[in-house]
Design a protein around this nucleic acid. Sequence first.
DNA 1: GAATCATGAGAAAGCGTTTTCTCAGAGCGT
DNA 2: ACGCTCTGAGAAAACGCTTTCTCATGATTC
Lengths: 348, 348
Amino acid sequence: MGRGHMARRNTNRRVGIADVAEKAGVSHATVSRVMNGNAAVDPGIAARVRAAAVELKYQPNPVGRSLALGKTDTIGIVVPDLANPTFQAILRGLSIAAAQDGYRVLIADSSEVTSEEAILAGEARRRCDGVVLCAPRMSDAELEELAPTLHPLVLINRTTIATNTPSLSVDYGQGIQELAQHLVTLGHRRLVFLSGPEHSASNRQRLVGLDQFREEHPEIELQMLHGGSNFDSGHESTEAIIASGATGILAFNDLVAMGLLSGLHERGVRVPEDISVTGFDDIPFAKYTTPPLTTAAVPINELGSLAWRRMREQIQQAGEAPSQAQDEFSPRMEIRKSTAAPALKPAS
Amino acid sequence: MGRGHMARRNTNRRVGIADVAEKAGVSHATVSRVMNGNAAVDPGIAARVRAAAVELKYQPNPVGRSLALGKTDTIGIVVPDLANPTFQAILRGLSIAAAQDGYRVLIADSSEVTSEEAILAGEARRRCDGVVLCAPRMSDAELEELAPTLHPLVLINRTTIATNTPSLSVDYGQGIQELAQHLVTLGHRRLVFLSGPEHSASNRQRLVGLDQFREEHPEIELQMLHGGSNFDSGHESTEAIIASGATGILAFNDLVAMGLLSGLHERGVRVPEDISVTGFDDIPFAKYTTPPLTTAAVPINELGSLAWRRMREQIQQAGEAPSQAQDEFSPRMEIRKSTAAPALKPAS
DNA sequence: GAATCATGAGAAAGCGTTTTCTCAGAGCGT
DNA sequence: ACGCTCTGAGAAAACGCTTTCTCATGATTC
């Protein structure tokens, strides 16, 4: 009844490097060297250590490892709203890409609470080797101040002026202009923009784009309606949209557009015969709505994986070149069935 | 030009407990005590320490803390597919609930690769204080063996027989029966079940439920069609569905149903006039499809937060009561517009 | 055959905390 | 006024690992 022969007793205590060392008859140091393939270790001893390791099912404790190495092999991402498919897609792309390089991702949802963002980002940074900040709602000033603190940092849908921070952004201004242009080309003369969250930088970009559009098309009536970023806000805008008398609706994003589509359907308004509707983002659901949604496609999947690439670059070349890549994507028009020429007799 | 007056030099090196101790003229230990409000510390000294801490913007290093405390304040979640809205919702609920108790969540996507699950779960467990395993595709045997290893573990959509592991599950068998019953009550006599991923436990539950349904309704024709779990597989099944001659379709989940809805629409088949379609899960999009989808609602949001509660219970009472809560939810029927009585003349 | 060098393994010093242990000094009772 | 308990702070050990430093052993060279 000695020891070592009783199979499972893993409840007792976690097997550590010391156990392996003892079993193999070497020191901790040697075990560590073998596990990390570091210095040259006598092949015989190495084999013995490895055998002991597998027999004991030894798995190095990541926390101890992190403390010693000063890195956690983890990156953090903070998003304004995990319920939004766009951010979900980014998270997914990031996670999968990072996993391929042996990194994990820690998530933080700020729930659109601007004041939480900085705190969450800071906390995440302390636990991780880097942070990707996704569409932060905080002010430019705050962002500028925070950025250096977070340093291995990647920004999505936001840029900094002063700091050398890689950023991934989408040209929402151009995208919304193209959508508006598409509607005008179809023959629409009265448009509505159903705007998004106030603090969203991408919403501001859309507004700027539309200002430009207005200058170029003074003959077009373009109303602004305040909305939100989700289904419900689109749905709730139904009456206002109908009341507007417009025939072409530019929704803030696909979610809003879908909510609106649903509301219009309930009210018996036909899309696209009576009203044309466009979205933005091209979330996976967009092409399955009825009618399929005309939208501006954002390379939603690439965004996450590219974010990881930019992060990896910074982590690897710690301190070398500034590496402030500023990637900007141009959305691609996806003309589907939710837009068409307006009915001949103009409303009202 | 002494020191301490030059504002930012945080690039230099992270400020540690030692810096605070030095500035306050006390030992590390005292700083730690103050920060954690542990033993009674002289109020004067405590104030001095706190002042030094805020001035230096000291934030304890979580890795060091984790090593000393043996806990990371982080839990891991492994999901088969982060692209699935159901898992996204669970992740979100979990993340938000955990955050309220000061915990973060680390994510791992197994991409439906069964063999990866155990590895990912193990890795996650080593970095975290617990793991929630979401709809694992692995075999029962493997799960039984793995479960004790992961111990603070919560299972979603899967149960273990032997082990005392809290689990959250949905009675898919009952749900699918109720949906089938709903169709029969409407007058449908020829049904099709569009099944899901082979290794999915919830798919097996549906099949078992339908077997029971068959026994109770020998007069009903119920075909099985092999499908998948996403949009595309639903869309691709369109032809087969039409060819089946059935009037009532039970899709594996809402995603599949939506894909099918889209396919049927393209083919000019009217829903629900020509064919009735049901989904499962009641993802947020389900009520915005056209027509709105009849489905069995899974409390998708609660699932995540309840998972956290079960996890917290285990973490807190480490080793006390077995606490093997087995929560089972009964889906709630959401009768919407995608189901109706079949056309009077039965097909073929 | 002796001096030099490469090789490889153990000892020990971190990494940044928390916590136990220890001890100095203050307050109290008799 | 002496010894007792009690409070509170510093010293040091622990957490689990990596890595530098050091030194012994065996190989190499003139």
